[in-house]
Design a protein around this nucleic acid. Structure first.
Length: 233
DNA sequence: GGCAGCCTGGTT
DNA sequence: AACCAGGCTGCC
């Protein structure tokens, strides 16, 4: 494998000959780096690649080094394409701008035309690519926006704050190594540390970090949503 | 746009 | 036994 390309939550592994493998991890998918003669003892490994020496590296033995695709629930998907360009055209064409790169103007363009609750909008990958259930809640808390606010009623100042909150939330999460709620592990098997510093997700019933009122949990856009009834409106 | 459905496994 | 879970597709 030569490199990895990402758009939102979609990945592509690019081989040295240019072929691409689109990867969607779903809820429980993981890419694991594994050293060993095989992967006995792992359940739910659906694909395995023996890693070869990268060009330019010294000629150490790379026997027994593997990349494993592991996914108990099988909501994830692997799909081969002849090139990254084909992957973008055929697989990623419906994705909106990447959440890490989106600015206030692009965010306003994505939000101005929909009457859905803002939480549903943030989860819609065709409008903004990259936010999932955890980071949508965290970004809304940072912006002091109630998850059921109708998207097109956001004022320009709120949209600006939301753009900044999305960027800060994702940057902090990446820095913390992601979020391990139940299943997520990074490729070396480590858990992510973001939830320890996050404000709301997984903390229903506990005090709001800003006002101490108990955080509430309910369903918005068919997803568990945790928020502060006093701080977010 | 809301919703069931896709799956398995851990927790209540 | 019932409920819960970082996502996404496709059907009304």
């Amino acid at each position: 494998m030569a490199r990895i390309v990402r758009r939102g939550k979609q990945l592509a592994l690019i081989a040295r000959d240019g072929r691409a493998l689109a990867v969607s991890l779903g809820m429980t998918g993981r890419l694991l780096y594994h050293r060993g003669s095989g992967w006995d003892g792992f359940d739910h490994v659906h694909a395995a690649w023996r890693l070869s020496r990268a060009s330019g590296e010294r000629n150490r033995s790379y026997e027994h080094r593997w990349l494993l695709y592991h996914d108990p629930r099988r909501f994830g998907e692997l799909a081969p394409f002849p090139s990254i360009d084909e992957t973008r055209r055929k697989r990623w064409s419906a994705l909106g701008p990447d959440a890490l790169a989106i600015g206030p103007a692009a965010l306003h363009a994505a939000l101005k035309a929909t009457r859905r609750p803002i939480k549903a909008t943030l989860l819609d990958q065709s409008l903004i690519a990259g936010l999932g259930n955890i980071y949508a809640d965290e970004a809304l808390f940072r912006t002091a926006l109630a998850p059921r606010r109708i998207t097109c009623t956001l004022r320009p100042a709120e949209t600006r704050r939301l753009a900044e909150a999305i960027r800060k939330t994702l940057t902090a999460a990446i820095h913390a190594g992601g979020s391990t709620f139940r299943d997520y592990l990074d490729p070396l098997g480590g858990a992510g540390g973001y939830l320890a510093t996050g404000a709301v997700y997984g903390r229903s019933g506990r005090p709001c970090p800003r006002c101490d009122l108990a955080l509430i949990r309910d369903q918005v856009a068919q997803r568990t949503t945790v928020w502060c009834r006093r701080c977010q409106y």
